[in-house]
Amino acid sequence: MSAVTVGQELASVPYDELIKNILLAMVAAQNEANASFIEGINDLVGTEVKIKYKEDSTEKEISGNALAFGILPTLLQIQSGIIEIKMAITLQQTREFQVGVKARMGFRVFSASVDAKYQNTYSYKVEGSSLVRIQVAPAPPPQPLMRAIEYIASKTAPTIP
């Protein structure tokens, strides 16, 4: 058989590439949310909060930055995710001596998502396709960032008369 058949260019990728790309897409999405969170922290550090009150007929003031008052921006996190992909699994034989091809068993596993184009191109029914389900959970919260927030808050504590 030929090395590359018509339509195989669509989305047929090595299985490890598929998994890697899915995980990186989720990392990219979460990083956008994290960047927004850090921007929010910077805004709060630069926001001066003044609370005025009267004590014994004397006007007094407590001031400090918003972060020091314990105000935190909202961090939206993907709590858990399940990704299901209908795909056609293809095995492709490799020549053992070829440099740069990861061949362990003499073949590699390729996968192509079974979308409308794929189904129409090959008259392939989605019922016949395989399914991969990836369940991911968020890693523990970024402790260095939380420690940085605590440090800033402690060093810029509100001035209380």
């Binding site: 998994i19 995980l23 989720m26 990392v27 979460q30 990083n31 994290n34 993907i78 995710g81 699994i89 016949g128 396709s129 395989s130 399914l131 991969v132 389900r133 990836i134 369940q135 991911v136 959970a137 968020p138 890693a139 970024p142």
Partner: peptide
């Protein structure tokens, strides 16, 4: 230098064959 924000807990494959 991106933070690793996800842990793959489980992966299942239903292979039609």
């Amino acid at each position: 230098s991106l933070p690793i924000v996800f842990i793959v807990q489980e992966m299942s494959l239903e292979l039609k064959c």
